[in-house]
């Protein structure tokens, strides 16, 4: 098992840091899956996480100038590692002006992801900082636990409003209530609602648009068959939603959510070379 990668381009480095920061905000520990083309950060659905799960996918080619990996075997050319993303985030935090960042899988005292940062210095040679991030190597028999979650059979899929506005609304609502109701229809309308003894607040978004998911028979599901007015709704833990909105630094070009009434809300944030999926289960 080998893994070695290098980032030289500053813009790529900063972008990669932002993705890692986002992951670090959303998960205390997560699984890093490495394949020849992609990196995945995975938080699988565990009760300890409040049933939240995350799936983040990056094309390595868009971030790394060098990327070599050899999995356990030729036919299973992948590596699964468990790590604390905060460590990676911290290692990259002081690498903002680096000449190069190398990431390497090592095994000195224990398996580590070594992040070596080459920084400019006043002297003739560069300053080198290394961070040995302990990782756990996940054996192959457990790989099945980290399958990509399938997109749920949702009732409504809708584009999200400007995330900054949504974040601010959810932040205020979080001061007032522990849970929030998300409801939306296929007319591009979405409501965020809270209700307590003291106050009820509803924020109405409209003209958001519904993404054209292709159904099995090839025609667009949003246009036909369904009642456009019918509202799908789910009540979720407001802190989990706030965490996503406050933690995300990927600046998505597209953001959408799929609602399975009373079961789950599935968020998808898309950037050209990053996709982040986040699943928040509905409260009873």
């Amino acid at each position: 098992m080998r893994f070695r990668a290098k980032i030289v381009d500053l813009a790529c480095l900063n972008h990669f840091s932002r993705v890692i920061n986002t992951i670090a905000k959303l998960a205390k520990t997560c699984t890093l899956r490495l394949t020849v083309c992609k990196l995945y950060f995975i938080l699988s659905d565990k009760v300890a996480n409040g049933g939240v799960s995350m799936w983040c996918e990056l094309c390595q080619g868009n971030f790394f100038d060098e990327f070599h990996m050899e999995g356990v075997a030729a036919e299973h050319n992948e590596i699964y590692l468990e790590l604390v993303p905060e460590n990676l985030s911290r290692a990259l935090k002081t690498a903002q002006s680096a000449k190069a960042v190398k990431i390497k899988l090592t095994n000195k005292h224990c398996p580590c992801l070594r992040v070596a940062v080459e920084l400019p210095s006043l002297s003739s040679s560069s300053r080198i900082v290394t961070h040995d991030i302990p990782v756990g190597v996940i054996p192959r028999r457990l790989w099945n636990d980290f399958r990509e979650p399938s997109v749920p059979d949702f009732d409504v899929s809708i584009y999200l409003p400007v995330l900054k506005t949504m974040k601010s609304v959810v932040e205020r609502m979080k001061n007032l209530s522990n849970s929030i109701v998300i409801e939306a229809n296929l007319r591009g309308e979405m409501n965020l609602k809270i209700e307590t003894d003291l106050v009820s607040v509803t924020t109405h978004f409209k003209d958001l648009g519904n993404p054209p998911w292709a159904s099995e028979d090839g025609c667009q599901s949003s246009a036909q068959g369904r009642d456009l007015e019918r509202v799908a709704e789910a009540r979720i833990d407001i802190k989990k939603l706030q965490q996503l909105l406050a933690g995300q630094q990927v600046n998505p070009t597209k953001a959408l959510c799929n609602i399975v009434s009373k079961r789950i809300v599935h968020f998808i944030l898309l950037h050209e070379d990053v996709s982040l999926q986040y699943f928040i289960p509905a409260l009873a």
């Binding site: 003291l198 009820s200 509803t202 924020t203």
Partner: peptide, 12 residues
Amino acid sequence: EEGGVVTVCKIN
């Protein structure tokens, strides 16, 4: 209302 988004609050 801000930017076309409307919030309705009922405060006891």
